[in-house]
């Protein structure tokens, strides 16, 4: 097994008294697709900035590709591709020029970077928009261009902070497809997301982060297995009735979760539980049997929903 490309131990970032990242430890293997899943404000982006060698840690140790970001920031960054949460493409430049200027930052010769830009535009399905203004691109296109830009230096590690936030479903799927190809090629991916489906699609392994700390670690399927049941029954009785009906449902399923808008019943056989509920004469307005997701893991671990 090769050496870990990222090793964080008791990594902490404090802003005055507030600990945005509070002593987290993790490792990422080369070629692995590693995710940080958590709600907004969990400390994911701060962790990414420290891993990206642009934000100085308050304490703990951090090693990226065997180097300390405090000492070798530019060297580490020369090996990274970064897709920030907020696009920071240069609106004054055309699409292709954005890739050219960025490649130059890594010391790439103009000729090499020109060829690379054309390859990346192809990869990002933007070849026909090479001379467009960035402003004229759709949100999904801008995101793909940002990813193309992050790949200009052929990075060993690609850091993606909320890569699909704000995109429509179709644009998300196109983006996932591109990221999946990179994963297949062996690029190490580190991504933050608050979308459980994204984490399930793209991550080999992930940590669930909340309030700057790691709550759980594992593959999406192992986390679901460990912290949830195979299936979930979602019932809606109306916001004024949910709490009172929940009392009658005690004993149904392995576990019950009452949310303001719905009741969740955790069980290995959703259909069977739904039959029991119907036989009890309880008529939900809507009912749904679905597979457990990371959303359920998060709810179990924190008592809160991921997207609030």
């Amino acid at each position: 097994m090769p050496q870990a490309v990222i090793t964080a131990s008791k990594l902490t970032k404090k802003y005055k008294d507030f600990a945005a990242v509070d002593g987290i430890s993790f490792e990422v293997a080369p070629g692995e697709s590693f995710g940080l899943l958590g709600p907004n404000g969990a400390g994911k982006s701060t962790t990414m900035r420290m891993v990206g060698a642009v934000s100085t840690r308050t304490s703990g140790t951090l090693s990226i590709l065997g180097l300390d970001p405090n000492l070798h920031g530019p060297e580490i960054r020369s090996q990274l591709g970064v897709v920030p949460q907020q696009d920071n493409l240069d609106m004054e430049l055309r699409v292709r020029d954005n890739l050219i200027v960025y490649g130059r930052y890594f010391g790439m010769p103009a000729k090499v970077v020109g060829k690379r830009a054309d390859e990346l535009l192809e990869f990002a399905q933007l070849s026909d928009r090479a001379k467009s203004k960035v402003d004229d691109l759709s949100g999904g296109m801008k995101r793909r261009l940002t990813i193309a830009r992050a790949l200009v230096n052929d990075p060993r590690i690609l850091l993606l902070d909320e890569p699909t936030t704000g995109l429509d479903p179709q644009a998300r799927h196109i983006l996932w497809d591109r990221l999946f190809r990179l994963k297949e090629q062996g690029t190490t991916l580190v991504l933050t997301t608050h979308y459980m489906d994204e984490a399930e699609q793209l991550c080999d392994r992930l940590v669930v982060v909340d309030k700057g700390a790691i709550m759980a670690e594992g593959s999406p399927s192992s986390l679901i297995k460990q912290y949830s049941t195979r299936e979930v029954v979602e019932l809606r009785f109306g916001s004024d009735r949910n709490a009172s009906v929940a009392k009658q449902l005690e004993g149904i399923g392995d576990r019950l979760e009452v949310l303001p808008d719905r009741i969740l019943i955790y069980t290995d056989n959703g259909e069977a539980e739904l039959v029991k509920i119907t036989e009890m004469g309880l008529m939900p307005i809507t009912s749904l049997v679905r597979r457990s997701s990371l959303e359920d893991v998060f709810l179990r671990l924190t008592g809160r929903s991921l997207i609030e």
């Binding site: 050496q3 065997g66 180097l67 070798h72 060297e75 020369s78 090996q79 240069d90 430049l93 200027v101």
Partner: peptide
């Protein structure tokens, strides 16, 4: 690992030396 470390250190040489000029190049393009 040591070869890899040397390669990474070497990749930082040009940006450390000419980074200011790359930014200027960007500005001129803009």
């Amino acid at each position: 690992a040591s070869d890899e470390r040397d390669a990474i250190i070497a990749a930082g040489v040009k940006p450390r030396r000419y980074g200011s000029w790359y930014v200027a190049e960007h500005r001129i393009r803009a």
